[in-house]
């Protein structure tokens, strides 16, 4: 085919800078949406645990929306849809400061909050009711039993699924490219268009994604083993 590989061309100067900027944006989206998503997930789980039908329904609707609509469309809804709700002045300002990344973080965080709250919920549900009974019969209050007996088990049971969601989120940050966030895959495509070095540009981006994914997988297997809850 006569194609000469030239990784050097992509791995220096302006292109190297673009890749590093892209990686930085990827990590910003990943870390912020992970933290926000996890905190929201805990809040949603608590709300759903309270026996009050209207709020339980709202949380269930929130979860089902995020599970049954493609993540890309959730990004579009925020990026295209939310803007029209805001006054023009706010929009102009948001465009100036590069609000795409903010929309991406919000959309991904809400999506992960929905999935992670389901993981917490199924963790909670797989604890045998006798554990609560045993905790109460020691003399612990409901809150004490939750704090010292139920929740420490629930998060361990949910951990493998939460780690799975973490990997999915990391890969999902690439979708932010579709709303113009200059993250890693966006930059890879841009470099490819500028330099016509398809294999180098995509190869380097892919390698970076794999490296970080493998790190997440490796950490996941260590944590899952370390905190595994073995029940007879």
């Amino acid at each position: 085919m006569g194609y000469q590989f030239d990784f050097g061309k992509v791995l220096q100067g302006e292109y190297l800078e673009l890749i590093l900027e892209g990686l930085q944006a990827t990590m910003v989206v990943f870390v912020f949406s992970w933290i926000i998503g996890l905190v929201l997930a805990v809040v949603l789980t608590v709300i759903r645990a309270i026996e009050f039908k209207p709020t339980q329904f709202l949380v269930a609707a929130f979860v089902e929306y995020h599970r049954n609509v493609p993540m890309l469309i959730q990004l579009f809804v925020w990026y295209f849809g939310f803007a029209v709700v805001l006054p023009d002045a706010v929009n102009d300002y948001l465009n100036d400061i590069g609000a795409e990344i903010g929309y991406a973080i919000v959309a991904l965080a809400l999506n992960k909050a929905a999935y992670m709250s389901e993981d917490f919920r199924s963790g909670l549900r797989s604890i045998h009711p006798a554990q609560m009974e045993a905790a109460r019969s020691i003399g612990l209050t409901y809150l004490g039993a939750m704090t010292w007996v139920i929740l420490p088990q629930a998060w361990r049971l949910a951990l493998p699924a939460l780690l799975g969601q973490t990997l999915i989120l990391f890969k999902g940050t690439s979708l932010a490219a579709a709303i113009g966030v200059a993250e890693l895959s966006y930059q890879a495509r841009y470099i490819e268009e500028q330099s016509f070095r398809i294999f180098e540009a995509y190869g380097i981006a892919t390698a970076i994604y794999m490296l970080i994914s493998f790190a997440i997988m490796w950490l996941s297997s260590i944590l899952s083993k370390r905190y595994e809850l073995r029940v007879k």
Binding site: K171, G172, L175, Y202, Y209, S213, F214, M217
Partner: peptide, 22 residues
């Protein structure tokens, strides 16, 4: 399996977009 799980679908689509015709 491990490699595919480590790559975003979007990157696979980019690859396929150029590599398949080639």
């Amino acid at each position: 399996v491990h490699s595919v799980r480590a790559i975003p679908l979007l990157m696979l689509i980019f690859w396929a977009y150029f590599a398949v015709p080639m």
